[in-house]
């Protein structure tokens, strides 16, 4: 499943990250790495971007970027 498909409140584990090298590298530098837990905290009122919690802090990214993050849903 893709991170972009999750509803707010959903908890998941990151499986892999695709995407262009620069953006992928940035996502990894921000702590989005395979095996990490990620929670979708909020979806913006207009449906995009989304807010996620990873490694204990809040990060926002666009759905376009979240399309490239493959996750498995927990619980």
């Amino acid at each position: 499943m893709k991170l972009a498909e999750l509803n707010s409140g959903a908890k998941a584990r990151i499986v892999s990250i695709r995407g262009k090298s620069g953006i992928k590298k940035r996502l990894q530098d921000m702590g989005i790495l395979p095996g990490e837990e990620i929670v979708v905290q909020k979806v913006a009122p207009l449906g995009d971007p989304i807010e996620v919690i990873v490694r204990g802090y809040s990060l926002s990214l666009r759905k376009g970027e979240a399309e490239d993050i493959e996750v498995e849903v927990l619980e």
């Binding site: 921000m30 807010e51 809040s58 990060l59 970027e65």
Partner: peptide, 10 residues
């Protein structure tokens, strides 16, 4: 092409 939007919400 938009610049990416990967932003911390402090």
């Amino acid at each position: 092409v938009s610049s990416p939007f990967i932003m911390e919400l402090p």
